[in-house]
């Protein structure tokens, strides 16, 4: 258990090592056609956080659900119970 906590903490430290305050995202550039045609639609998605949250919920919820299903199916009982040894 100690080893586990140590390695986990080390790893977490590495991952967070250079997480700094988030700079405000730059506004999307107005798309300019290389040949110089003006008034090109920007074609940038507005909003859409609902889709992002839905995906992260699927990812994390799915992972938790599958972990629970494995836990529910875990092998039970003492080793000797499973029949005669060959």
């Amino acid at each position: 258990m100690k080893r586990f906590v140590f390695v986990a903490a080390l790893w977490a430290g590495l991952a967070f090592a250079d997480i700094a305050p988030v700079p405000p995202p730059a506004p999307a550039p107005a798309a300019v056609h290389p040949e110089g045609i003006e008034n090109v639609p920007t074609g940038v998605i507005q909003g859409g956080w609902g889709y992002v949250y839905a995906c992260y919920i699927v990812a994390i919820g799915g992972t938790i659900f599958y972990a629970l299903s494995l836990f529910a199916r875990r092998p039970r009982g003492s080793p000797g119970k499973s029949g005669p040894q060959s």
């Binding site: 798309a31 056609h33 045609i37 090109v40 920007t42 074609g43 940038v44 507005q46």
Partner: peptide, 8 residues
């Protein structure tokens, strides 16, 4: 869709 633009 919102991503529609010239060149895409």
């Amino acid at each position: 869709p919102q991503m529609f633009r010239e060149g895409i």
